[in-house]
């Protein structure tokens, strides 16, 4: 886990020195590989930066956790530990909200493709939960870090996640007030799993202090803070 979270940015892409934000946020340049041009003119190569690789690596880690979690039986559909959110929390604390959003949304998309649930209600449920918790995390990350740690972010995120899902269920799938009976169960699960995930993330962050290379990188990219 340590090796995959801490990214060495010393070498790699020529875009590393640019301070214009995440290359992934801008349209990726499409360039034709020289070798491929001779053999096959239609082959194209997407230019990727070290940042892209880094996000992809985190998303893959989160994806692994969500696949692992799919094997855990659940007493009630929708009550899941949300282990993949541990990765989101660590990424949020280390690399900022934008990276966390990328990792989370990629995980939701790729996870649905792996589980075969892409564009099914389950996919939209996890998407709405992820979007809601990212929106709340965007606000809660500004809480003073001296007092509020990953546990707080995790609990806020968990409640926002379940709120987003329940709103979608109510307005789209089951427009029935009987849904209200399930809300306290989901809230209790959010509190429990939010706390546990937050503790795991806090444990990891305490055991793996900030890498200086990354700190230098963060200073280079003010939008990353």
């Amino acid at each position: 886990m340590t090796a995959s979270i801490i990214e060495d940015r010393g070498e790699g892409s020529p875009r590393n020195g640019e301070a214009d934000g995440f290359p992934t946020a801008t349209p990726l340049p499409v360039r034709t590989s020289e070798k491929g041009e001779e053999e096959n003119p239609s082959s194209i190569l997407l230019g990727t930066s070290a940042e892209d690789h880094h996000i992809a690596r985190m998303a893959a880690l989160a994806l692994g956790l969500s696949v692992l979690e799919a094997a855990i039986p659940s007493p009630l559909p929708g009550v899941k530990p949300g282990l993949a959110n541990i990765v989101t929390l660590i990424v949020l604390a280390r690399y900022g909200w934008r990276t966390a959003a990328w990792v989370t949304l990629l995980r939701v998309l790729a996870g649905s493709l792996l589980m075969g649930s892409f564009l099914t209600p389950g996919f939209f449920l996890s998407l709405s939960g992820a979007l809601c918790s990212l929106a709340v995390l965007a606000a809660s990350q500004h809480l003073p870090s001296r007092w509020f740690g990953p546990v707080t972010h995790s609990i806020f995120g968990a409640f926002a996640h379940i709120a987003g899902q329940l709103l979608l269920v109510y307005f789209w799938l089951i427009p029935h007030t009987g849904l209200a009976y399930l809300v306290p169960i989901f809230a209790a699960a959010a509190l429990l799993f939010g706390t546990v995930n937050g503790l795991v993330a806090a444990h990891y962050l305490d055991k793996n202090p900030i890498n200086h290379k990354i700190q230098r990188h963060r200073e280079m990219r003010p939008d990353c803070l």
């Binding site: 003073p144 001296r146 509020f148 707080t152 609990i155 806020f156 806090a202």
Partner: peptide, 12 residues
């Protein structure tokens, strides 16, 4: 619980 900061208790 050593990882829980004071504000986290408030959130809990």
């Amino acid at each position: 619980i050593a990882h829980i900061k004071p504000g986290d208790w408030l959130t809990l």
